[in-house]
Nucleic acid binder design. Sequence first.
DNA 1: CGGCTGACTCTGG
DNA 2: TCCAGAGCCAGCC
Length: 107
Amino acid sequence: MNTREQTSPLYTQIYNIVCQIPPGKVATYGQVAKLVGGCTARMVGYALSALKDGRDPNVPWQRVINAQGRISMHGVGSSIQRMILEEEGIEFDQTDSIDFRKYLWDF
DNA sequence: CGGCTGACTCTGG
DNA sequence: TCCAGAGCCAGCC
């Protein structure tokens, strides 16, 4: 599927990658950015922010976290997000960080 | 076409 | 562990 290059908004490409993240795993912005290619970590974050538009509610943006292993979201959704990740089987530590050794998306 | 905003990452202290 | 500064680009009005 990733062989399909779309010239649509770069955001669509990012959503596509995020959708490929398997359950119980998480990916960092830089990780997704690299898969998209030519995209930077910021673009991923900005792209996900655009999701609020409701264009792709199916995108598991919650599985995308920052390089610190924590949720970068500003809004109250961060609490919700953590709950969702726990539902996926991901555990948080005392600092609200995720254990990359086991949960980082390894393709 | 110009300017503002935004959910990042890295390095150093 | 926390904080600050710099680099970077795509949408939207």
